[in-house]
Amino acid sequence: MSILVRNVSKRFGDFIAVDHVSLEVESGSLTALLGPSGSGKSTLLRIIAGLETADEGQILLSGRDATRLAPQRRNIGFVFQHYAAFKHMTVRENVAFGLKVRKRPKEEIRDRVDELLHLVQLEGFAHRYPAQLSGGQRQRMGLARALAPEPQVLLLDEPFGALDARVRAELREWLRQLHDVVHVTTVFVTHDQAEAMEISDQIAVVNHGRLEQVGAPRDLYDRPASEFVMTFVGDANDVGGRLVRPHDLELLNEPADGSVEAMIVRVTILGRDAKVELHDAGGAELVALLTRDDFDDSGLWRGQTVWIRPKHERAFAA
């Protein structure tokens, strides 16, 4: 099921949470809504779910106007950052909830719940209560619960935000694999650009309630449409007013055309790469990323003065 957001706005008092956003999500794709906290990305997701109503604009699900439709009639699955587990129900009852309220036959519910518990690897936990689960397990239960009624759209609001780094990485990988199997149109909200880059087909970058850019992860990185996208998606240096990716900086022993003088203050070897931190004449911090081979050949050392030159650069209208 495709999602079409058409010119949607939402205010909370004087605060404009979502400002005339239009977005298209293709059927079966995995889209990330990426932005800093307070950018309006969660509000936009909640408007798609029907948990908030838009002040203006339309939401179309599969081409049908769903703007005024109650959430329970949108056929969506929603995963909450803090799980929203039904505390008085066991894992099995939690997962079965969406099927029970639809009054599906008992055997069907049992089989479907078994299937989902297997999918999220919680078979052994069916009779536990949420309080007896770890955060990662609770969120997997949340996912199984959202998927049980076979929603046409899966919406996830910072689903891994409350988890520690290792569980986060695991679940992220697992969500991508799950999506490759289930193929449900998925939109997830995140403030973590690495997470968005790693698992989504399409990223919509949101800032101050506005959509900055929509595109494939690679396009956003290689062809950012604004300074905000350039600095938010991936790292960037400001070299004399020009924005440059760390791996697009050349370090020279001699001054050259368009080069800037800087001093190396720290070198970190990151396995195959070397991260070189520099200060320019004005004291601004710069970061260059070299391959190990280039770094080893160059004979750079801490405290050395070098001239840095952008290989590619970008300028954005302010």
Partner: peptide
Amino acid sequence: DEQEQAARTLGATGWQTFWRI
């Protein structure tokens, strides 16, 4: 009200949400 919201997104009506959640 997160649990109630979750119930709504799972297809529960207002009554069902009240009685079950």
